[in-house]
């Protein structure tokens, strides 16, 4: 047992290094193939487009470590965005509307968590339901219209740069550090792993598993709220079809980073590498002028392939 957990640890360290190497090779190859792609400023600017997905991927990492999944994040992002836009249009001050948006995100996560723990339902069913429900509310409220014309200061969250760094990327970095500390240096982090590894054993060990699950889903909802705020500020418009397919990108990032889809293991560093690799792949494709529909196919393939490779590796390491 001891030897095995040691070798697992070594494997995990190796994995992040392998991913980092892949990332470097990926950037090098894209730079060689696409003239004008390699440009530090340009590469940093590209972080603007994936910081939202990155934020949610951090929360999703925790969700998947507990053995669950959240398919509703894209729909919830749309609901958050619509809440901000339409409560502003209805006369609420924009700062209050923004807070309402983040609040709706958090409540959405809480709703998922409460449903999952109270009815003891599998998260995939609950979040498949809220996947339709949240976007359904967003469509119903917005009546398929969009709101734009926000005051200038609102571009703060999504369009500002500090030096060379887009503000939301610094935000993402901050949350990466927080989540790394929480997951690997706090008792709560250990509980998250324990619940995912063996929920019954965790309960017998005195961990309130329901509270852990509730906290994890609510936290994920809160991150979706923040991401929705950044998204609305970046796009400068709010509409119901925001974040279509976002759940796929986010889950692909997490599993590419080595988080086990059945729960119990995964790291924030791995997820960070998953975020970078997948986002710069998309960025490279867009830069090279490849049709956006290919993006759907690539991410789908990466998602399935990522899980497949994980499962095969784990089989071997036993």
């Amino acid at each position: 047992m001891n030897a095995r957990s040691l070798s697992m640890d070594r494997f995990r360290v190796n994995r992040s290094m392998v991913l980092a190497l892949i990332f470097i090779i990926q950037i090098a190859v894209t730079s060689l193939l696409v003239p004008g792609y390699f440009d530090i400023r340009g590469l940093l600017d590209a972080t603007r487009s994936f910081s939202e997905a990155g934020l949610i991927a951090l929360g999703m990492t925790l969700v998947i470590i507990t053995g669950g999944i959240d398919l509703s994040v894209g729909a919830l992002l749309a609901l958050v965005s619509v809440t901000i836009g339409f409560s502003y249009q209805a006369g609420l001050p924009l700062w209050a509307a923004s807070m309402a948006g983040v609040g709706v995100g958090t409540l959405g996560g809480l709703f998922n968590g409460a449903f999952i723990t109270y009815f003891r339902l599998h998260p995939l069913v609950v979040t498949l339901g809220t996947f339709a429900l949240f976007r359904g509310i967003a469509y119903a409220v917005s009546d398929a219209n969009a709101v734009s014309g926000f005051p200038d200061w609102f571009s703060l969250f999504g369009q500002t740069t500090l030096g060379w760094f887009p503000l939301q990327f610094l935000f993402l970095c901050l949350f990466v550090v927080i989540f790394w500390v929480v997951l690997s240096r706090c008792a709560f982090g250990r509980y998250v792993y324990a619940v995912g590894h063996n929920e019954v054993a965790a309960r017998f060990a005195g961990i309130s598993t329901n509270s852990v699950l509730l906290a994890v889903y609510t936290l994920n909802g809160f991150l979706v709220g923040l991401a929705g705020l950044i998204y609305t500020s970046r796009i400068a418009s709010a509409r119901g079809n925001a974040g279509l397919g976002l759940e796929l990108t986010v889950i692909a990032m997490v599993v590419l980073g080595g988080t086990k889809i059945t729960g119990g293991s995964g790291t924030i560093v791995g997820t960070m590498m998953g975020i970078l690799i997948l986002s710069y792949l998309q960025d490279g494709l867009t830069f090279a002028g490849v049709r956006a529909d290919w993006g759907l196919i690539f991410i789908g393939v990466f998602l399935i392939l990522g899980v497949f490779v994980n499962q095969v590796f784990r089989e071997r390491s036993r």
Partner: peptide, 23 residues
């Protein structure tokens, strides 16, 4: 046989196939 949970396989496939139809 591939040990990928079916929600991941079929969710990935949902997007791959839609992408293929759009292309």
């Amino acid at each position: 046989y591939g040990r990928v949970p079916s929600i991941i396989t079929t969710l990935g496939m949902l997007f791959i196939l839609r992408g293929a139809v759009l292309l």
